[in-house]
Design a protein around this nucleic acid. Structure first.
Length: 922
RNA sequence: AGGACUAUAGCUCAGUUGGUUAGAGCGCUACCUUGACAUGGUAGAGGUCCCCAGUUCGAAUCUGGGUAGUCCUACCA
């Protein structure tokens, strides 16, 4: 074995081995365990959030696979309608072509080509993370089977009246030329203006002043509204206004939506271009005048002067024209929320178009009930509130998109505009008895990507066929996802699955936090703070990293800043840390209910942990290979104290890990493993094994027992660790297993360690605790007194109990070795002792004679510190005990515990003071 | 506007049902290449548990009120 762990050497080798041997496929017991991957964008690439999420899923999957479950991790990718179409359109643009010039069929072919070309990136990256998904079952949302499921769902919902077509206001993206759902609109506060206009009354008796943030919409105004109880305007209700710049008269109406306090208390109403106005228009049967075209330029419904102008040009023109008419009262600065498309970034317009909708209110009812009843549980639970809040006020879901890439809507229209929904044109004709002479035209739109994602848990398993996989693995066990897609995806999956399967899609939703950079900023391309998980695994030089972070920047000054901060943060680039270290870092940060700040220092620490594991294994192998490790039962076995102790601690660790995983506390699991492996197995157990293995006088039974324990405990914790660090554990296990009497082609399919609580040896724990304390006592003196580590000491023990005496007898060799002692022995309580530095373990005194070694003043100073600390502790405890109500009212066991503490402290204090006196008088 | 979450060592974070000497990793200080590991070992320093009040014998932990930060939802023209 190499002296240091080299992850690159082993990772790809093992992954290929696992995949090619089919280890990821379901196999195992009657109980199924299934996780559906949140399908990443097929043409996307891996980011830190994926890395985190996949690591968690893989740990759960490997854990349950080893625990004997019939385990499926369903993998697949999403066609990501808008995102993918945009990428391909940009590529066409760069070549001077366009989607329109190409035509629909050819364009869609192009997208498929792009998918074929770049679709392997993300799946290759998932493999680099060690994710053990079943690639033989990989699905894509536009596979024939999944498309069939989409069509089936659409048709059935339509027939049930739960999908309908309607003309109403939608969020229109003027850049992408498509409707988008409410969820795809992000509103940010921006600086804007509030324009105040005078609208003249038709009767010539003055005007009303209205305010707007979007002046151009006044061209489509069809009313002015005031509050019904607003005394200032009550007499005007029913009269009309001469709408400036147009030749229209519009009514003054009363509606209690109007806020009397805001502005003048008069609101211009544009039902075709504002969601609130739309509703008011419905209430008052107002005319709806659409003044925009698909590009959000002014259309022919507006006065001629404005036709063809872009909305923002028209805005300036309207303001200028009103101003010249003397109707512009004032302009104020105003911060407002501007709605923008999450993909295009352009300002969204409420726009009147025919679209398809899902009746979400109806579907939401059972979906709410499922969570209320606990059929689905969120972890952490507080996300249920978020879910309820949204579901109880859910709006109908606009599912049609004016795109070409996606599932085309299975609806056909005749020339009269009558709609027929069915699986194909032929099916529609047959069903409705339509003659061949009747021309049918398929709906041009495709479905929202999330429509197909909503079916993911069952469409991937073969639905609408009743497949064996569906029967076995549905509902799935747990969904691992970020809170950002609870509405987009989780809620919709629950609705669709309950409707079509009459069962939940999953029993648990584990909601993890967002991965942020070290300063808590969201990672984003434009901030240039993105970390690529693959770069953390393989490492990257500074220059390529800068290149990567600044590539394709629109603004050169941004690139400069990014380069500077990157140089500062990673002056030497990023070292290769390996997948295991990266994964372990994720786990250690994965406490529930908070985002994680990714600190490069942590991953370095866990890389070191990998190295520690590697070297611990080297040590064990050096001492066991070619030796009798008691593989065959029989032969003398004389377990040492340390052997019994570490076996018990292993059980406790196994229990802790199982407990942590059951609660999705990967941070606690990783911590328990780290602590056991490094602080107990390596720091203490390996050291305690040396005196046995290197002692020529030790019995063969003792040596055999120690070798056996060394190798078996190692073998067990490799399995225990495997779901979290798959590669290093597999690599080491291959060599270790036979020596531990285990056989098998892979650690992946070995049984997961289960705690045997009867093997926990409380007495051994206490004895080891004593041993550690004595050693630490001596080391402390050595360290603080600057005694060279190589210098062997003679130590005297005093005032020991019978237990201390027998403990010393049994452990003298260990003490000598670990504390570097030439000799250790007892002195009687009244016996004269040389002047010594002392440490206390309970009542036992450890004496290190000072002659020639220890400076008198230094020891006095050390004792003074010790005394001060002890005095403080004692004062606190005595304070409690002198409080009558504490003694009266606290539980007796708490009180007696405090009393014992006080006694022990008092005694220790006495001894320390005695010691000070002795040193001073010498 | 409503809601959620967060605040503990210089940094990143644990801390179970109230009773600990408030912990870990990184960083820091000193010493050490001892036959697994310097990606290491040993010892050590470092905390007003955000603030105020309350409940309690006892609060990092429970309650109320503040402060600061992050996020979500809905929005007034």
């Amino acid at each position: 074995m190499e002296k240091t762990f080299q992850p690159a050497d082993i990772e790809t080798r093992w992954y290929q081995e696992w995949e090619s041997k089919g280890y990821f496929a379901p196999q195992g017991g009657d109980q199924a365990y299934c996780i559906m991957i949140p399908p990443p964008n097929v043409t996307g690439s891996l980011h830190m959030g994926h890395g985190f999420q996949e690591a968690i899923m893989d740990a759960l999957i490997r854990y349950h696979r080893m625990a004997g479950f019939n385990t499926l991790w369903q993998v697949g990718t999403d066609h990501a309608g808008i995102a993918t179409q945009m990428v391909v359109e940009r590529q066409l643009e760069a070549q001077g072509a366009s989607r329109q010039a190409l035509g629909r069929d050819q364009f869609v072919d192009k997208v498929w080509e792009w998918k074929a070309q770049s679709g392997g990136t993300i799946t290759e990256q998932l493999r680099r993370l060690g994710s053990s998904m079943d690639w033989s079952r990989e699905r894509f949302t536009m596979d024939p089977g999944l498309s069939e499921a989409v069509q089936e769902v659409f048709i059935r919902l339509y027939r049930e009246g739960l999908i309908y077509r309607g003309q109403r206001l939608v969020n229109w993206d003027p850049a992408l030329h498509t409707a988008i759902s409410d969820l795809e609109v992000v509103s940010e506060e921006e600086q804007g203006k509030l324009w105040h206009f005078r609208y003249p009354l038709s009767n010539g008796e003055g005007h009303l002043t209205v305010a707007t943030t979007r002046p151009e919409t006044m061209l489509g105004d069809t009313a002015v509204a005031v509050h019904p109880e607003d005394g200032r305007y009550a007499h005007l209700v029913g009269q009309t206004i001469d709408l400036p710049l147009t030749d229209r008269k519009i009514p003054i109406i009363a509606d209690d939506y109007v806020d009397r306090e805001f502005g003048t208390g008069c609101v211009k109403i544009t039902p075709a271009h504002d969601f609130n106005d739309y509703e008011m228009g419905q209430r008052h049967q107002l005319e709806m005048i659409n003044i925009l075209d698909d590009n959000a330029a002014i259309n022919n419904n507006a006065p001629e002067a404005y036709r063809g102008l872009d909305r923002f040009v028209a805005r300036e023109r309207v303001v200028a024209d009103l101003d010249s008419l003397g109707l512009l009262e004032k302009i104020e600065d105003h911060t407002l929320k501007v709605p923008r498309g999450d993909r295009s970034g352009v300002v969204i317009e409420p726009y009147l178009t025919p679209q398809w909708y899902v009746d979400a209110k109806t579907l939401a009812q059972p979906a709410i009930a499922a969570v209320e009843q606990g059929d689905i549980q969120f972890v952490p639970k507080q996300w249920e509130n978020t879910y309820f809040a949204w579901m109880r006020d859910i709006q109908d879901w606009c599912i049609s998109r004016q795109l070409w890439w996606g599932h085309r809507i299975p609806a056909w229209y005749d020339e009269a505009g009558k709609v027929y929904v069915g699986a194909s044109e032929a099916a529609v004709r047959e069903e409705h008895g339509l003659g061949d002479d009747l021309v049918l035209r398929q709906d041009a739109d495709v479905l929202d990507t999330w429509f197909s994602s909503a079916l993911w848990t069952f469409s991937t398993l073969g639905w609408p066929e009743e497949t064996p996989e569906l029967a076995t693995f549905h509902p799935s066990s747990v969904l691992v996802t970020g809170f950002d897609i609870i509405f987009f995806w989780v809620a919709r999956m629950i609705m669709m699955t309950l409707h079509f399967r009459k069962e939940v899609p999953f029993h648990t939703v584990y909601v993890h936090g967002l991965v942020r950079d070290v300063e808590g900023q969201k990672m984003s391309k434009s901030k240039g703070n993105v970390l690529d998980p693959i770069d953390l695994i393989d490492g990257i030089q500074l220059e390529p990293l800068i290149e990567k972070r600044t590539a394709g920047m629109m603004q050169p000054q941004l690139a400069k800043r990014i380069e500077k901060s990157t140089r500062k943060q990673f002056p030497n680039g990023i070292e290769p840390y390996g997948t295991d270290a990266l994964r372990f870092t994720y786990f250690s940060l994965a406490s529930t209910g908070r985002d994680i700040k990714f600190d490069i220092g942590r991953i370095e620490g866990f890389r070191n942990f990998c190295n520690k594991i590697w070297n611990a294994a080297r040590y064990v192998l050096m001492n066991t290979e070619g030796e009798d490790c008691g593989q065959q039962d029989g032969g003398d076995l004389a377990l040492s104290l340390a052997d019994r102790w570490i076996i018990g601690r292993l059980q406790e660790t196994e229990a802790a890990v199982a407990d942590a995983v059951a609660q999705y506390r990967f941070d606690l699991a990783s911590q328990a493993l780290y602590e056991f492996i490094w602080n107990e197995y390596c720091d203490w157990y390996l050291e305690l094994s040396k005196p046995v293995l290197w002692d020529e006088n030790a019995s063969p039974g003792a040596k055999r027992a120690t070798r056996r324990t060394l190798i078996r405990v190692l073998e067990a914790w490799l399995r225990l660790l495997h779901p979290f660090m798959p590669f290093i554990t597999e690599e080491i296990w291959q060599t270790v297993a036979p020596l531990a009497g285990k056989a098998g082609p892979t650690i992946m399919l070995q049984p997961y360690p289960e705690a045997d609580l009867s093997a926990i040896d409380k007495a051994a724990n206490a004895d080891i605790e004593w041993l550690k304390n004595v050693i630490i006592g001596v080391r402390n003196i050595r360290g603080e007194m600057n005694i060279p580590p190589g210098r062997e000491l003679t130590v005297l023990l005093k005032n020991g109990s019978d237990a201390d005496k027998s403990r010393l007898e049994q452990n003298a060799t260990f003490l000598k070795k670990l504390a570097k002692l030439a000799d250790i022995g007892w002195v009687e309580p009244d016996e004269e002792t040389p002047l010594s530095a002392t440490a206390l373990v309970g009542e036992l005194e450890i004496l290190v004679p000072m002659a020639g070694l220890i400076d008198k003043e230094a020891e006095l100073a050390r004792l003074a510190r010790e005394i001060e600390k002890t005095e403080q502790d004692l004062a606190r405890v005595e304070g409690k005990l002198s409080n009558a109500s504490f003694v009266d009212r606290a539980p007796p066991e708490v009180v007696s515990k405090e009393r014992e503490k006080a006694a022990a402290l008092e005694q220790a204090l006495g001894k320390l003071r005695e010691q000070v006196e002795r040193i001073q008088t010498m």
